[in-house]
């Protein structure tokens, strides 16, 4: 379970995350949604100890992330932020293999190699495994980074806007992969999404943020209403049931 208790982030006078208290149970896919500047990415980064908190506490399976040694936490929780720019020239396989770093400490065993192969297969990267990252497209690179996080094999996987720089086909594939990881591998996935409809179709639980606070949370059915969408985004939308899924139309 991930527990955030009164978590805040302030930069001088500006409050980015304002006393968020949140409990995310183990298992399933949770999507954090909200308009730009709602504090979604900051909250995710604080949960993953990448960003120091101004106030509050985050516990992952009871471990205080601010106090637990980084190496211990790295076996339970992984995060992928957006904009992964890598100046170093590494092959896809090298990068994914570094996902095993918390377990192998740089001395990969046969088990580590199996994890790497599985992660490459999961993201359909076998054909690109020996290519250098700087020779790939943005979407391929993004998939390589997700494969690295998957190879890390943590119970909790946090993804900050993983659909960035992915085209339609790969965005859908990525969300299906997230579902598979949750169902087959028993991962708890928390991800920040911009597209409400992806959250509706693939998440078990949606957390809606606005102005640094959690405005509402619940199942997709609870969030996918015109009233809720108006409250979250200030956008007029209609919600339609298409093929058993709730789709919000807000394009016109």
């Amino acid at each position: 379970m991930i527990e955030a208790i009164g978590v805040s982030k302030r930069y001088g006078e500006t409050v980015v995350v304002d006393g968020v208290t949140l409990r995310l149970p183990r298992g399933g896919v949770t999507a954090i949604i909200g308009p730009n500047g709602a504090g979604k990415s900051s909250l995710l980064s604080m949960i993953a100890r990448l960003l120091p908190m101004s106030a509050g506490q985050v516990r992952v399976d009871g471990l205080d992330v601010a106090r637990t040694p980084g190496a211990v936490l790295a076996k339970r929780l992984s995060i992928l932020r957006q904009d992964n720019h890598l100046p170093a020239r590494l092959t896809v396989r090298d990068l994914v293999a570094f996902g095993r770093y918390p377990h192998s400490g740089g001395r990969p065993t046969r088990e580590d190699a199996a994890h790497v192969e599985r992660a490459l297969r999961y993201l359909a990267l076998e054909g690109l495994a020996e290519r250098f990252l700087d020779e790939l497209s943005g979407g391929q690179r993004q998939r390589a980074f997700v494969a690295m996080v998957l190879a890390q094999d943590t119970d909790y996987v946090l993804l900050d806007e993983p659909l960035n720089s992915l085209d339609m086909q790969h965005a859908v594939a990525m969300m299906r992969l997230v579902r598979r990881a949750a169902e087959e591998l028993g991962k708890t996935v928390v991800l920040v999404l911009h597209d409400l409809n992806f959250a509706s179709c693939h998440a078990d639980h949606i957390v809606a943020m606005r102005d640094g606070r959690v405005l509402m949370q619940g199942s997709p059915a609870a969030i996918m209403t015109p009233e809720a969408i108006a409250a979250i985004y200030d956008v007029e939308a209609t919600v339609h049931e298409i093929g058993g899924r709730l789709i919000a139309a807000y394009f016109a």
């Binding site: 990448l50 980084g70 790295a74 770093y101």
Partner: peptide, 21 residues
């Protein structure tokens, strides 16, 4: 210490996520 330097070269966020100080 080569692996540590390679991981550090991926940036502070990735390195931290991989449990590196």
């Amino acid at each position: 210490a080569a692996d540590r330097f390679t991981v550090a070269g991926m940036g502070e966020d990735v390195a931290t996520s991989l449990g590196l100080d």
